[in-house]
Design a protein around this nucleic acid. Sequence first.
DNA 1: AACGTACACTTAT
DNA 2: ATAAGTGTACGTT
Length: 149
Amino acid sequence: MEIIGGSCRFGLWFVHVWWNGIIVHQVRFTTTGISGEVPALIRQYCGGRNVRLSQLDSIAIHEDTVYSRIYRAVQDIPYGSTSTYGEIAARVRTSPRVVGQAMARNPTPLVVPCHRILAADGVGGFTPSVDIKMALLAMEKKGLRRVKI
DNA sequence: AACGTACACTTAT
DNA sequence: ATAAGTGTACGTT
C-alpha cells in the first residue's frame, strides 16, 4: 500500500504524518504544512480531544530491539499522565540515557507519546522544540479537565 | 571493521 | 562539579 503524507495544525506548528492507511511511518513537527490527509485520530487529538493515539499502529513498535521495547512501554502511558526516563528505563531494563536516545529518534511522536516522558528534575527535551512538548502536556491537562466536568 | 564521539538521563562521588 | 554507565547512530580512520 502506498505511503501518503499530509499535515494538520497544532498551534503554530504543522504535524506532518506519513502513513499508508494502516500504519504510521513518520510523524514530524514542521513550520510549513503540505496538503494531504492525516489519520482522523491525529486530527482529533490536535483539536484537543482526549483520544488514545496509541491505538494507531507505528512502524517503530514491531522490532525486537531495545528501542522498540521502549516505544511499546511509552505507548502504555495514558493521555494526560506522564512518566520519566528513569521509570521507562526500569521497566525495559535499560538505562535512562538510552530511553532519551530512543525518544530523540522516535520516528512517530504522538503515536508513541514521547512528550509524556519527563526528566527526573525538569521537563527534559523535545525535537524540534521543547515548547511543543509543553503545549502538548498543557493541552492534555485541559482535555482531562474537560472530561471531568 | 574498528574506534571515537555525541546524545531529549540518572545516580553517586 | 564531574564521572560512570547505557545502546545506538554516525563520522572518521
